[in-house]
């Protein structure tokens, strides 16, 4: 899972113009940039920021769903959910690796997450309050993430692009699992339908926020587009998402919490109301429902695991001394 990033880009502009021109020509030809190739310092910096944010989102994203593994209402759902949360750990793992090829270590990145210096997707600061949240996260949240990820699977940096191809495949699977669960609950008993509606009401707007600020408030976009990292804008992706989701959700008899939502015959788009941007920035700045809890859980896992990591390192050292 993943949301769009919100940090600002500053271009230092001190690059060798000839090398920069060659680099941009390579990207224009559709070549992938590989570790070892020349790249502008800003390209490296932007990628590290994006990939590590993305990796952190996967890891923090394990928490809201993971809380329901022990409570899943059938063996089948328990298996599906456990394997899904595990996939997210896997995605974090692939992404930390992709970022490491740019010259930063996983330890440094984790440190930045735990000290609050690095961000992760806002969406995971919202609580999972009933079982229907699990299907909703699978279909809507992963569905929104896939819009971004499909774009990033074509990005110009080889290792990131390759990680994304693998991740997209698995996320599409999660989306299907989530959709199947939402379908079942929305057509189920009155209690199930009630919990399903409650989940959609709470998650709809935070999901739309995952695409990030409006294009006009997203200063990094032009540079990221030129360097082949982003190929589509936040607003374009968000509109595609609403077009895809709104009719399906309504077909299931679910109500979306947006009185302004309506189909525009002329444009073929589902028009929707304005996002509560105050809420968006508030959560980005740390004042979400669960920012502090999420970080406390990550810190605790990290601290509780310290002795294990030390033991492994000590053992490896002793073995090496023997050989």
């Amino acid at each position: 899972m993943y949301g769009a990033s919100v940090d600002e880009v500053k271009q230092d502009g001190a690059e060798d113009p000839q090398k920069l021109a060659e680099f941009e020509a390579r990207i224009a030809r559709g070549e992938k940039i590989e570790p070892g190739d020349w790249m502008p310092a800003d390209y490296r910096k932007q990628l590290i920021r994006m990939i590590s944010q993305h990796a952190h989102s996967e890891i923090v994203g394990m928490l809201p769903e993971g809380a329901w593994i022990t409570r899943a209402p059938s063996l089948k759902r328990k298996l599906i959910l456990l394997a899904k949360v595990q996939d997210e750990a896997g995605h974090g793992q692939y992404l930390y690796h992709a970022a490491e090829t740019l010259g930063i270590s996983r330890e440094e990145m984790v440190d930045m997450l735990l000290t609050g210096a690095a961000k992760y997707s806002n969406i995971f600061n919202y609580p999972t309050l009933n079982w229907a949240d699990i299907g909703t996260i699978g279909w809507l949240v992963d569905g929104a993430a896939i819009m971004n990820q499909t774009m990033l699977a074509r990005c110009s940096y080889g290792p990131y692009s390759r990680a994304m191809v693998r991740i997209c495949m698995e996320e599409n699977f999660h989306k299907k699992q989530g959709q199947e669960q939402v379908i079942l609950l929305s057509q189920g008993t009155p209690e199930q339908r009630k919990m399903m509606q409650d989940a959609i009401t709470r998650w709809w707007w935070p999901t739309l926020m995952m695409f990030g600020p409006h294009d006009t408030d997203s200063p990094n976009s032009p540079l990221l587009v030129r360097w082949g990292i982003k190929t589509r804008s936040n607003d374009e992706l968000r509109q595609d998402f609403v077009n895809q989701m709104a009719p399906d959700l309504m077909a299931l008899g679910l109500t979306l919490p947006d009185p302004d939502l309506k189909y525009n015959e002329a444009s073929g788009n589902w028009e929707f109301g304005e996002i509560d941007w105050d809420e968006f920035w508030r959560v980005v700045k740390g004042d979400g429902p669960l920012n502090a809890d999420r970080m406390a859980a990550r810190r605790k896992a990290h601290e509780d695991g310290q002795w294990v990591r030390e033991a492994l390192a000590a053992y490896a050292e002793k073995q090496q001394a023997l050989n």
Partner: peptide, 20 residues
């Protein structure tokens, strides 16, 4: 026991069509 990792386990397109 890993049958749930099979795409065909989740026939969402058919399900949506039936509901519509």
């Amino acid at each position: 026991t890993h049958d749930f990792k099979n795409q065909a386990y989740y026939p969402v397109i058919t399900l949506m069509r039936e509901i519509r």
